[in-house]
Simulated assay, not measured.
Amino acid sequence: MSPEAVQRIHDSFAAQSMMETLGARIEAVAQGNVRSAAPILPGARQQQGHGHAGLTFSLGDTAAGYAALTVLPETVEVVTAEIKINLLAPARGDRLVAVGKVIKPGRRLCVVTSEVFAEADGKASLIAILQGTMVPVPR
């Protein structure tokens, strides 16, 4: 990807106030693939002290959406049409990492997936898998 295309992804991500609130950042951008991460902050925990499923979902959805954006023209953004999540384990640890991937790109629909990992003591554990559809919309 060109440096301008990568910058476009970063700029769009930075415009999301939700990701700013969660402390999320993009860590890597490649064609059809985006990795983002967020700390499990005190305000994003559920009643047992683990990362809330809402944090897991938000981070996974966003990584998948930006993965889709990497394969689309500069004239569009994306919105989620539908996405499902399978929660596999509690979000125990210090931060979550989401890896979004494009499964099938298209001009009208992009099928995407993401895996979300919880990191604790230097180890990453898969805690969720998401699959969904992104729709390109004019910028």
Rank of each mutant, 00 (worst) to 15 (best):
M134V: 05
M18D: 11
A28N: 00
L55T: 05
V135A: 13
I40C: 13
G106R: 08
Q31C: 05
G60V: 12
M18R: 12
E77C: 03
S114E: 05
F13E: 02
Q46T: 13
V29G: 01
S125V: 12
H10Y: 11
V34I: 13
A67C: 01
Q131T: 09
S58R: 05
L55Q: 01
V76P: 05
P39V: 01
F117H: 11
A44T: 15
R92I: 11
P136F: 11
A44S: 15
R35C: 04
A91F: 01
P105R: 10
A124F: 00
L96V: 04
G132E: 05
I9Y: 08
S114A: 14
G43I: 14
E119C: 07
S36I: 10
P42N: 15
S17V: 13
K84P: 02
G106P: 08
F13D: 00
D121M: 06
E27K: 03
Q48D: 14
S114N: 04
G106N: 10
G93P: 01
V111K: 05
R25D: 10
C110H: 00
D121Q: 14
A24R: 01
P105M: 13
L22I: 12
V78Y: 03
V6T: 03
A15Y: 10
L59K: 00
G49K: 14
V111L: 14
K101Q: 14
R139G: 01
E119D: 10
T80H: 10
A63E: 00
P105A: 15
E20C: 01
L55Y: 03
L126H: 05
R95Y: 12
V71Q: 13
V79F: 06
R45V: 08
T62Y: 10
A37Q: 13
T133W: 13
V78C: 02
P42M: 14
I9Q: 10
K104S: 00
Q131P: 00
F13G: 02
V116R: 04
E119S: 04
P3S: 12
V79A: 09
Q48H: 12
S17D: 14
G106E: 07
A30K: 13
L88Y: 04
T75S: 01
T113L: 00
P39G: 01
I26N: 04
E77Q: 08
K104E: 03
A64W: 05
V102C: 11
R8I: 04
E77V: 07
Y66W: 09
D94E: 15
V76I: 08
P73G: 06
A118F: 07
A38K: 04
I40P: 08
A14R: 14
H10T: 02
Q48R: 13
S125K: 13
M18N: 09
L22H: 06
V137K: 12
G65E: 03
G65S: 12
V137G: 06
